[in-house]
Every structure is written in C-alpha cells, then in structure tokens.
Amino acid sequence: MRMSLVTDCLGYMSLEKMTDTAASLGYESLEFACGNWSNAPHVDLDGLLESNIRREDFLNTLKSRGLEIEVLNCSGNQLSPNDDGRAHQEVVMKTFRLAELLGVKTIVMMSGLPGGGPQETTPNWITTCWPPINNEILNWQWNEVAFPYWEKTVKQAEDYGIEKIALENHGSQLVYNAETLFKLRNHVGKMIGMNFDPSHLLWMGGDPILAVRALGDAIYHVHAKDSRFEKGIVETAGVLETKTFESISNRSWNYVALGHGHDTTWWKEFFSVLSMTGYKGAVSLENEDLTMDPLTALIKATTVLKESLPKDFANRKIVKTI
C-alpha cells in the first residue's frame, strides 16, 4: 500500500511548500482536489487545462520531490437540482479532461444526491422507510436521476481514458455504504468502485473492518480518517448530528486525527484486513481535525499511519526538504 496525502489539509501552504512537507514526512503520492466542495488550494483547474507549460511545471514540482499524482478529486453534488448541481457537473467534466492530460486513471468523487422529486430545488437524503412517501422518493432518485446520470458518466469517463471512479461512502449521498455502492455498481458496471473512508461509516454506527471484507475488490481507493463519539453527548443525543463542524465541543461526534478516535491497534487490524482483501493501492491520509493546528494533526496522524500500515518504511528514502 502506498502512503498518499489529501493535500487540502495543508491548503494554507503553497504547492512548493506543501510538496516539501509531504515528501519530508514520507508520502509517496498526492490526492489533489480540483474544486466543488474543496477550494482546490493546489490546483488551478482552468489554468492547467489551458496551458501545457503549467502542466509540465506542476508535474516537475512533484517529480523533483519524489512524488506523483495518485488521484484527482472532484467531490461535490452534481445531482443537486439547482445551479450548484450544474456548476459541480462542470467541474466534474473539467476534472475528467485534466485527468486525461495528466495521465491520471482514477477519479474520486461523490455519488450525488438528487432532490425529492422533479419539482424540488434542494437535495433530499432519505434515511428511513417511514412515512411511506420516503420509498417513493428514494425510488425516483435512483431510477430517474442517479442511474441515467451514471450510465452517461461512465461512458464519458471511458472517453477520457479514466479506468476507475471511486465514490466516497459519505452521508447525504445516495452511495454511503457497501449496499448502496453495489446497487449502483451492479447497474452501471465496474468502472464504479468505492473510495472507502472509515470515518463516515464509524459515525453512522457501522464496522469498517467488516465493511472492507464485504466490499472486497470493489475498493478502488482508501481515505485514512478517524472519527470519535464524544462521551456525555452521543449517549443522549445519538449520532444524527446537525451542529456545524466548528462547534466541536457540543457535537455528538467529530472528525479527528488518525489515532485520536481509534488507537493504533484498531488501525493495524483495519489495514491488515484491508490487505487480506487484496487491496494494494493508496491509503490517502485526510485530516479534518479542528482541535489542533493542521500541521500538528498531520504529523501525529502520519505517525499512526506509518505504525499501522503493513509496509516497511525502514528502507524507504525520505526526501528531506524542510
């Protein structure tokens, strides 16, 4: 498994400083966000599309530090029934174009979430079967919006030389667990797999270790991110949390740096079982811990990642640039 980094956690750094930092910490590849729910701190999407020179400079910055592009990420809600959906779809298509120009074969994105019907203007995430209209809404979302969209999108991705689309198992999306992933994959084919992020399944009450067994070779990418139930709150409030992420002291759960929700022993088992499934791809560290500064969180999480991955780091040459 390769150590990769979602570069957004160092979004306050320039591309040069970020790549220096990533290389010095032992990362081998990088996951770049191209827009939508990310402000794309290290990717000028339009600029890279327009200029071969800019693309060469971008790639040389990585190569000189012993790094490469692992995936491009355009996560957003392209199925949203409003202007946001149309804008997000534009970024999706630009990301496909850039992937072809850069030789990137895997795209990370979200499945999307439609509205509750043809006249709706906001997304609607159905999480219970009652009242009965919920099932009608869910069937419409899948059959009338999601399936047609992904049938078309898979063909478009193929036209740009993309081999895999890894959908993140995220809340407020149609695909948020193994069952919903297979529902889409079985309909549109094996271009679609999962970007498995254990932190999301954890806050939903699932078991990521059992989930990777269920997913098997449908796992195309992995995010290393942790989440923690907050004692004294989750027991009375439950896990359906609507307070903003900045309200960390009042939430029933929070995203935390690797090892700050589940200890190294848990992560060792997770990565060991992931290896048993045959996964040999990238593990991309993602940090959204708001309890400490980003670089501190990254350094602490990297220590846990190195300790937990079934990989020998002793003989890897680390580029020391900071």
Score class of each variant (00 low, 15 high):
residue 116 G to R: 09
residue 234 V to E: 00
residue 160 Y to T: 00
residue 157 A to H: 05
residue 86 R to W: 12
residue 209 I to S: 07
residue 79 L to S: 12
residue 63 K to Y: 10
residue 61 T to K: 08
residue 294 P to K: 04
residue 258 L to W: 13
residue 114 P to Y: 03
residue 174 L to T: 08
residue 144 E to R: 15
residue 134 N to L: 05
residue 169 N to H: 08
residue 121 T to E: 02
residue 222 V to H: 00
residue 243 K to W: 14
residue 260 H to Y: 15
residue 101 L to S: 05
residue 107 I to A: 01
residue 315 N to R: 12
residue 282 A to S: 13
residue 223 H to S: 02
residue 138 L to D: 03
residue 168 E to R: 04
residue 123 P to D: 13
residue 225 K to L: 00
residue 81 P to R: 14
residue 227 S to P: 09
residue 270 F to D: 02
residue 237 A to L: 04
residue 110 M to C: 09
residue 69 I to K: 12
residue 3 M to A: 09
residue 132 P to F: 11
residue 293 D to S: 02
residue 166 A to V: 06
residue 74 C to I: 00
residue 247 S to K: 08
residue 57 D to F: 01
residue 313 F to I: 03
residue 77 N to F: 14
residue 148 P to A: 06
residue 204 M to F: 12
residue 209 I to Y: 10
residue 251 R to S: 02
residue 159 D to N: 08
residue 309 L to H: 08
residue 287 N to V: 08
residue 124 N to H: 13
residue 26 G to F: 09
residue 151 E to M: 07
residue 85 G to A: 12
residue 187 H to K: 14
residue 140 W to S: 04
residue 130 W to Y: 14
residue 143 N to C: 09
residue 121 T to C: 01
residue 151 E to Q: 10
residue 197 D to A: 06
residue 265 T to Q: 15
residue 206 G to E: 12
residue 218 A to M: 11
residue 14 S to V: 11
residue 216 G to W: 14
residue 28 E to H: 02
residue 150 W to C: 05
residue 65 R to E: 12
residue 167 L to G: 01
residue 98 L to T: 02
residue 187 H to G: 07
residue 197 D to V: 04
residue 9 C to G: 03
residue 7 T to C: 12
residue 265 T to M: 14
residue 240 L to T: 02
residue 232 G to K: 01
residue 208 P to D: 04
residue 242 T to Y: 07
residue 171 G to M: 13
residue 299 I to Q: 15
residue 124 N to P: 05
residue 54 R to I: 13
residue 136 E to F: 14
residue 300 K to W: 05
residue 232 G to L: 00
residue 43 V to M: 10
residue 58 F to A: 03
residue 245 F to Y: 04
residue 205 G to L: 08
residue 184 L to M: 15
residue 96 F to S: 00
residue 305 L to Q: 05
residue 247 S to Q: 09
residue 20 D to R: 06
residue 36 N to M: 10
residue 92 V to I: 14
residue 316 R to Q: 11
residue 79 L to F: 12
residue 29 S to D: 15
residue 229 F to M: 01
residue 126 I to L: 12
